[in-house]
Design a protein around this nucleic acid. Structure first.
Length: 470
DNA sequence: ATGTCC
């Protein structure tokens, strides 16, 4: 793949073959050293009907289902633009929530063991069923799918202020529960308020460094402060919705005269019945993911209050796997776009009307979950925002799960974490080793490349004190 | 990511 470096940390893949737009990859040569297959996917995405601007990739690009993870693609809704489930991914609405504690590390020290043991008991995790909240009354799951974090708060699981700090106020309006199949509902019913497995986690952290005082102040975090980060998604429900709608679109595609270079790019026009069905189901999964993070927040709050008399307030909650209908300027014209972000985080700039007033001056908080035992980051949106106001979402894997599990035993890894002052509460040893820090790229490099490329600015670095995993 | 293959 020929990459033209047109600006610092910005490479261009010129149009060729069936590409409708060029590819634009924000990265360094080092970050792309192992990304040949993923770059091929950037080219494939560039062939989708209605795509505008470019097929974009963030610095943490790696190979995914159809679209690369770290991919951003916007299609013109009024010009035959398509929506593709592969452009969102299987874990619909996977995202991150950051909570700020009213204490610093020293103040928490004596209660840390009790906090970690409490979280160990209170946070359902791992593959399969189990959640803090089992919808019982008829129609309650449907209310979760329609109301997201807002419904959870209405039921007493959180405070009104939480919603102001959630993307979309905690719920998207266009959920269509009728498009969520029976199997998806069945899987979702038993997993409301659960972390899941693999790279999902709940971490107790401290703010190690603040790079932008004004933004950190507006976000409500300061150096030394304890934070809690929750990284999870829509569990089996989102997975099943993706599976169901990929199949439906794969069957319908030819009726719209659409041919794609890879079946995993199955798509239909946004305006088609299949496109609308997927977007309605996807929105329901988005709400499920937000309710999930809201309920886990309440579980963590109970533990911190009882074990340490500490309060947790919400900094922000944002997804990195979602397609959204947004209006953007394209070549001087306002256009309605379907923006797919898969392993890419929305990053609205300062002044954006959709941001709550107290965040508007600094731009949207962007939350980057790091690798276990290393660091996570808080970023902020910037003017310009190269790829429809999007930036990176995390480190990206360097080693396969199998390779990682072979490189170190669970007990060795836990001992190493504890030597570094990080308490670990894994559900399984295997799950822990698959997430060994050496299995991931350096999240600091990803974040630095994103900032240099003009996608965001770095606000703060967070380091782990304790990790709860599936 | 995922009841890690209907």
């Amino acid at each position: 793949m020929e990459l033209l470096e047109e600006a610092p940390h910005r490479f261009r893949i010129e149009r060729h073959g069936d590409m409708r737009v060029p590819g634009v990859v924000f990265a360094s040569r080092a970050l792309l050293s192992d990304a040949q297959q993923a770059l091929g996917q950037v080219v494939n995405v560039a062939t989708l009907p209605g795509i505008v601007g470019a097929s974009y990739a963030m610095p943490d690009i790696h190979w995914g289902y159809g679209f690369p993870i770290g991919g951003v693609a916007a299609t013109d809704v009024d010009d035959g633009g398509v929506v593709s489930p592969g452009g969102v991914g299987f874990d619909i609405s996977c995202g991150v929530r950051l909570l700020a504690a009213d204490c610093d590390r020293a103040q928490l020290a004596s209660a840390m063991d009790a906090v970690m043991d409490g979280l160990d008991r209170a946070i359902p995790r791992g593959a399969g069923p189990g959640g803090v909240w089992r919808p019982s009354r008829a129609g309650e799951l449907e209310r979760v799918l329609e109301g997201g974090a807002r419904y959870a708060v209405e039921q007493g699981h959180g405070e009104e202020r939480d919603l102001a700090r959630c993307e979309d106020g905690g719920a998207v309006r266009d959920a269509d529960v009728g498009q969520v199949g029976g199997r998806a509902r069945e899987r979702g019913l038993g997993q409301v308020g659960s972390l899941g497995s693999a790279n999902h986690f709940l971490e107790v952290q401290q703010v190690a460094e603040v790079y932008d005082q004004a933004a950190a102040g507006a976000f409500g975090i300061a150096r030394g402060q304890v934070t809690v980060m929750i990284h999870c998604g829509s569990r089996g429900l989102g997975h099943q919705i993706c599976t169901d709608h990929v199949r439906a679109m794969d069957r319908a595609m030819t009726r719209y005269g659409i041919a794609v270079p890879d079946r995993q790019l199955a798509c239909t026009p946004v305006a088609s019945p299949e496109g609308q069905a997927y977007l309605g189901a996807m929105a329901a999964a988005a709400n499920y993911g937000r309710a999930n993070r809201q309920l886990l927040t309440e579980a963590a709050r109970r533990v911190f209050r009882r074990a340490a008399d500490v309060r947790l307030s919400l900094v922000y909650d944002v997804s990195h796997n979602l397609a959204k209908l947004e209006t953007h300027d394209v070549a001087g014209r306002r256009r309605r776009l379907c923006v797919h972000r898969k392993g890419a985080t929305r990053a609205f700039p300062p002044g954006h009307p959709e941001l709550p007033e107290d965040l508007r001056e600094q731009g949207q908080p962007v939350l980057i979950p790091g690798t276990m035992g290393t660091a996570s980051y808080v970023l902020a949106g910037v003017p310009g925002g190269g790829a429809f106001f999007s930036t990176c979402h995390g480190a990206g894997r360097r080693m396969s799960r199998h390779q990682a599990a072979r490189s170190i035993t669970g007990r060795e890894l836990r001992a190493r974490l504890e030597r570094d002052g990080i308490a670990a509460r894994p559900l399984s040893w295997r799950g822990l080793t698959e997430e060994a820090p050496e299995a991931y790229k350096d999240v600091g490099e990803v974040v630095a490349a994103s900032e240099s490329a003009g996608l965001c600015r770095v606000v703060a670095r967070l380091v782990p004190l304790g990790v709860v995993k599936g």
